[in-house]
């Protein structure tokens, strides 16, 4: 006989005791601290131009130096952080919600609607994700919102596929048939049974996608297609720093370190979340 966690309280306990989760929490806290210090404690604004201090080394006045326009690197970096996290989260959530609706409804409604969605999903999945995003962003043009939309396109087919296969499976499961026998209609079954069994896999996929989302957004900005100056993004800060690598090599360290930390944190988060759900799954 299997035993599993009896109620929701200990689900969180398991999560909290997971090493990966703790690590990720720690990393996010560090980044959060960085952001707070950079925005509140540093006297300079991220956009402030200090003509006399172009490309200076890190010193007591500018903790991470200044860029080619004389802007303080530290505060710029700090200001980019919340955008990075928010944009990657938004990209995943939009794609996840939209895709899940498409997938679940496809399995539910069936017939031509489902067939169309299957074909569309396969086509979209047939393209490497970066390319899809590049194309969309290229067409729509640069900008924060458009970048989010472009990235969400990556996750729509993935979640649609998940939603469809799970729902298809669930439709023939015993408790759904029993529910029909009790006289409940498709809406009831959807809300009570389908959603409840979809939720765990949904969250796992979301967690895993957070890191790729951040990577894609940063990559797009790095290529000059996502978020472009004058708006700040970790990606375009990085590409900028490469341009001046011979004159001011220290500019490179900040963006790359923050990027790596954020991606690592997201990876650990996804890893720990998927492990937690896995243990509860029925074999």
């Amino acid at each position: 006989m299997r035993t599993s966690e009896p109620n929701k309280v200990s689900r969180f306990d398991v999560l909290l005791s997971n090493r990966s989760f703790q690590l990720s929490l720690g990393l996010y806290s560090f980044v959060g601290l960085f952001w707070i210090v950079g925005t509140l404690l540093v006297p300079h604004g991220p956009e402030d131009i200090h003509d006399q201090f172009v490309l200076t080394r890190p010193n007591s006045q500018f903790l991470l130096g200044t860029d080619h326009l004389g802007r303080d690197q530290f505060s710029r970096l700090a200001s980019a952080i919340p955008y990075a996290i928010a944009m990657s989260g938004a990209g995943v959530l939009i794609g996840a919600l939209f895709g899940s609706v498409l997938g679940i409804s496809a399995a539910y409604i069936g017939r031509t609607y489902e067939k169309t969605i299957v074909i569309l999903t396969n086509v979209l999945l047939g393209l490497p994700s970066i390319m899809l995003a590049i194309l969309v962003v290229g067409v729509l043009g640069p900008g924060r919102t458009k970048t989010i939309l472009a990235v969400s396109l990556i996750y729509i087919p993935e979640f649609a596929r998940l939603g469809r296969s799970l729902t298809g499976h669930l439709k023939s499961s015993g408790f759904v048939i029993a529910s029909r026998l009790m006289g409940h209609g498709p809406v009831w079954i959807l809300r009570l049974h389908i959603i409840s069994n979809f939720r765990p896999s949904f969250f796992v996929l979301v967690a895993i996608s957070l890191s790729t989302s951040l990577l894609s957004i940063t990559a797009l900005s790095f290529l000059g297609l996502g978020v472009v100056p004058p708006e700040t993004d970790l990606g375009n800060m990085l590409s900028l720093s490469l341009e001046y690598v011979s004159l001011a090599p220290w500019l490179f360290l900040g963006p790359s370190a923050i990027i790596v930390i954020l991606v690592v944190a997201a990876n650990f988060l996804g890893d720990s979340l998927s492990k937690t759900v896995d243990a509860r799954q029925t074999v």
């Binding site: 408790f175 529910s179 009790m182 069994n197």
Partner: peptide, 29 residues
């Protein structure tokens, strides 16, 4: 099923109960 008062008990006991719900909810359905 519901109209005439016919019900069914299935072969696979675990499959007929939603694993995400408490028994209270399973019965209340």
């Amino acid at each position: 099923g519901s109209e005439y008062g016919f019900q069914m008990v299935f072969q696979d006991p675990a499959g007929s109960l939603n694993p995400q719900l408490r028994i209270e909810q399973v019965l209340a359905e």
